[in-house]
């Protein structure tokens, strides 16, 4: 069966430096795969390569079995992307932001579709008509997640999704991600939050200086052991 996301011997050079070096992994349908790494490990670059924003210097990335760079538009149509900064327009309301981006994605959504997405991410009703410039980081993140939900794509790419969120919001977010995976959505998230990755992911990959240096999978019905991953992460970072 074709994996929705696959990196084959992926290498990436930027300004003469190796950002990714022979990285290979795949993410199965309905799986949550977390790439864990420190700053500059190449986590975000991996996501950007799946989106076709960066071109591999060697190897290839595949979305639903098709090479991304053979048809970038097709790959993007299968992916919802949540950037680290939850980048949306501050001068627009949550409704306006979603309507705009969904229009550009060619998706039509009614006001009730938007409301039901906002309810799933627990964005307060009174906030939805306010401009995002008055939002907290968590509220912006919820709006961006609502957009990802409404895209109804089979794949979700998350870049540091819980960065800046309070503990309650993080828990809510993890629950939501698990629910999405349960419904069949394939999720690749990159993070430096060991605890969060182990809480939510089915598998965790350790990325260090562009190389995939370790992988941990959850036992059926159990979570990945945080201590083990943390120790491996610390050991690799210290090496």
């Amino acid at each position: 069966m074709t994996a929705p996301l696959e990196a084959r011997s992926l290498s990436l050079m930027r300004e003469g430096n190796a950002v990714l070096d022979d990285v290979s992994f795949s993410v199965a349908e309905g799986e949550i795969f977390a790439l864990l790494g420190g700053n500059g490990a190449g986590k975000s670059s991996t996501l950007l390569t799946f989106l076709g924003f960066l071109r591999p210097s060697a190897g290839e990335v595949l979305v639903e079995g098709r090479s991304v760079h053979a048809n970038v538009a097709a790959a993007r149509s299968s992916i919802a992307y949540l950037p680290e900064a939850a980048s949306l327009y501050g001068h627009m309301t949550a409704y306006e932001n979603l309507e705009y981006f969904l229009d550009l994605a060619g998706r039509k959504a009614t006001r009730s579709d938007l409301d039901s997405a906002f309810e799933r991410v627990a964005l307060a009703e009174e906030a939805r008509s306010r401009r995002l410039q008055s939002y907290s980081k968590g509220m912006r993140q919820k709006t961006a997640i609502a957009l990802a939900l409404l895209r109804e794509t089979p794949i979700l790419l998350l870049d540091e999704p819980t960065s800046g969120l309070d503990p309650v919001a993080i828990d809510e977010f993890h629950d939501l991600v698990k629910a999405l995976a349960s419904s069949g959505q394939t999720i690749l998230m990159v993070t430096h939050d060991v605890y969060g990755a182990c809480q939510v992911a089915d598998r965790v990959g350790l990325l260090r200086r562009g190389k995939l240096v370790g992988s941990f999978a959850a036992e059926p019905g159990r979570r990945i052991d945080t201590e083990t991953v943390h120790a491996a992460f610390a050991e690799r970072e210290a090496a």
Partner: peptide, 8 residues
């Protein structure tokens, strides 16, 4: 990035 990710 978000705009381009929407297929633009």
């Amino acid at each position: 990035a978000v705009l381009l990710a929407q297929g633009s």
